[in-house]
């Protein structure tokens, strides 16, 4: 059992509804869970179940109707650089070079901003591309730049909302391995939203399955396999089938 002090994120009775044209759409209905310091938690769920809404609430971009999110025991009140969001679309600024993007989040008073940016560009494998503009990079390199820009500000938490979904299958897999390699060096707490169950098994320590709207936690799975993982192993496949079953997909192995 994790001790109380190692709880990084506590989501308590979060509810959220969207109202438009007098239709009240309850998106999240009383959600409770905790994420421990350094833990990698993946959230899977049917599309439209409110995963992104949940992530936006946890990261502070959206206020819940009731309930609250505590980070390090402090009630979340707006986004900040201790938790950086990485989305499917990406948000690397196209008008800044890779290096300028990496330096963007670093306050001016941080010493050696340039050296730090170079260090993280190298960490994600972008050495030699520091002075390129994003439109000169491939999709995978752009993702690396975004991850580096997040890591360089030394956040405690990474919020990843379908981060690799826009990449082709091969590049997605490659980026998953990259992410694991980087996380082995820099211990971060990670929340990952994905619709790809194999990706969740490959990366996460724990997988939460959300129900269809209004979202609540339907099931929770520990992923007890040591890294590097083989998603094709019988144990991993059994876990995959169990998760898919929770999602309402039956598959014969």
């Amino acid at each position: 059992m994790p001790t109380k002090s190692s709880t990084k994120i506590r989501v308590q009775n979060v509810r959220k509804a969207f109202t438009n044209d007098k239709v009240n759409l309850q998106v999240i209905e009383g959600l409770d869970f905790e994420v421990n310091d350094g833990e990698f938690v993946a959230i899977v769920g049917p599309s439209g179940c409110g995963k992104t809404t949940l992530m936006n609430i946890i990261a502070g971009f959206l206020a819940p109707d009731s309930g609250g999110v505590h980070i390090n025991g402090v009630l979340r009140n707006g986004p900040n650089r201790k938790g950086i969001m990485i989305t499917q679309q990406g948000s690397v600024f196209p008008w800044l070079t890779v290096k300028q993007n990496l330096m963007f989040g670093l306050p001016d008073e941080v010493p050696n901003r340039e050296a730090l940016a170079d260090e993280y560009a190298e960490l994600v494998g972008l050495k030699g591309f520091e002075n390129n503009y994003p439109h000169e990079l491939s999709g995978g390199m752009l993702k690396r730049a975004e991850i580096a820009r997040a890591l360089v500000v030394k956040p405690e938490i990474l919020y990843m909302d379908e981060p690799f979904s826009a990449l082709d299958a091969l590049m997605s897999l490659r980026m998953q391995n990259e992410l694991l390699r980087i996380l082995a060096i820099e211990k971060h707490t990670v929340m990952l939203i994905t619709h790809d169950v194999e990706e969740a098994i490959h990366l996460a320590d724990r997988i939460l399955v959300l129900s269809p709207r209004p979202a609540r936690i339907q099931a929770s799975f520990e992923v007890p396999f040591a890294h590097p993982r083989r998603v094709s192993s019988p144990e991993a496949q059994a876990l995959r089938v169990a998760i898919l079953k929770e999602l309402g997909v039956t598959e014969t192995v």
Partner: peptide, 12 residues
């Protein structure tokens, strides 16, 4: 919006 949001996230 994603760019404004990123800027907000980094708290510049």
């Amino acid at each position: 919006k994603r760019f404004l949001r990123a800027a907000e996230n980094f708290g510049v």
